[in-house]
Design a protein around this nucleic acid. Sequence first.
RNA 1: GUGAUUGUAGCUCAGUUGGUUAGAGCGCCGGAUUGUGGUUCCGGAGGUCGCGGGUUCGAGCCCCGUCUUUCACCCCA
Length: 454
Amino acid sequence: MQKPTLPKGTRDFGPEQMRKRLFIFNTIRQTFQRFGFQPLETPSMENLSTLTGKYGDEGDQLLFKILNSGDFAASLTDTDLQAGSKKLTPKIAEKGLRYDLTVPFARYVVMNRNALTMPFKRYQMQPVWRADRPQKGRYREFYQCDADVVGTDSLVCEAEIVLMIHEVFRNLGIQDFTLKLNNRKILAGIAEVIGVPGQEGLLSVAIDKLDKIGKEKVLDELRERGFSETAVAGLDPIFTFNELETNQVLEQLQTWLSASETAQQGIAELRETLQLVSQYGLTDSRVEIDPTLARGLSYYTGAIFEVKANGVSIGSVSGGGRYDNLTGAFGMPGLSGVGISFGVDRIYDVMEELSLFPASAGQGTQVLIVPFDREARTVGLPLLSKLREANIASEMYPDLTKVKKMLDYANAKAITYVVLIGSEEVQTGILSLKNMITGEQKKATTEEVLRLMQ
RNA sequence: GUGAUUGUAGCUCAGUUGGUUAGAGCGCCGGAUUGUGGUUCCGGAGGUCGCGGGUUCGAGCCCCGUCUUUCACCCCA
């Protein structure tokens, strides 16, 4: 007999973990619904043609592919085999597991374009899969919670995302976070201004590492990637934005990038977004403008968001941005969208590390009924029904066994209250209510028990 | 995909230059205690030392492969 194991990078979630995870899911769902987003689910698997080419070369590498059903290799010929593994893949795998929730959403929008009322706002909370190598805060199967709006390019949507992020993290109890904001147009403008128009992709990848590897190494990497000395030197101003107020950052950017119309547009968008946010009345904003923020996903065209929890070494817990033409890949050009994604698994890790889960998030059964004998059930069962009618999570120990064993059960399940029922309680109708934490025990009527449990 | 790293009881870990029958703490089960848990005392169960091969008279320990864990790079939630 072999020991069972899990595939690399996947996990089981036991009852205690699940209660905490549900706390996160419920908190996020609540905010999404309050902002008018509607639920959507899409299949775990998509046609590979839907997924490939949307996440860049790196992303394509990380797609989990699904072998065709049946004898997937039956129709292969010798020429197929000799053509090499790269060309073989599409012949034996037509489907893949979804890599994120945004691309399947774009696919859904295109397929249902006639039925949807624009602007269309949806939220989606489902697992995604990436064939990455697992490490801290990185899994091969993890959950994302996305909210996206398509069919409008209004910056009100960006502002609402900023608000939702604040609401979600504050409701979760994560107070110390930073919401980094940038705009792809500013990155494009920087590339223009330093004389490498269109190269913002390469540029971004290097600049994004600034706070991790430092200025010199970023410049080295750019040189390695073929950027000229003039271009590298032209980048100097970007290293001066640290610690500046958002408005100062925007002003300096405006001066530095005055030659780029694209950049000016990006700066204007950020300005307007921030103005809208302040009109909403957001207090104690955690927004920082960070011109070095890149976000790899290749489909972003406007605003880019990233959220980091401070004080823990776990990567970003949330990310998103505006994409102007994601539906174009599916034959529906000119539809702008913007969205945000919360990484549940990383949020869990952050909250666990900082001990931020409220006690109620781990709470299961509130009351355990402990019957000493068969007769006790005649009192216990009606009580159970009343407790449940009052929406109190309750259960009765099903076996007639030693009291010790039943109380051990209550302790193991962290059940705070126990109702003890023996011959005395059956005769008098007065119950014995015990608090398992304090050890205190007192007599109480059914009504009193119900009231105390509320 | 590149480079490291880990694996011994349910959990956390010992295990000497390779040497008899692989240990501890916690947890679990039973009893002291047939109407009261957490404390205490007594007893008990539980291991193919990740898996496969090799070296050796002899391997938990050395070598090779493989899976797994963790970490860095790449990239990312």
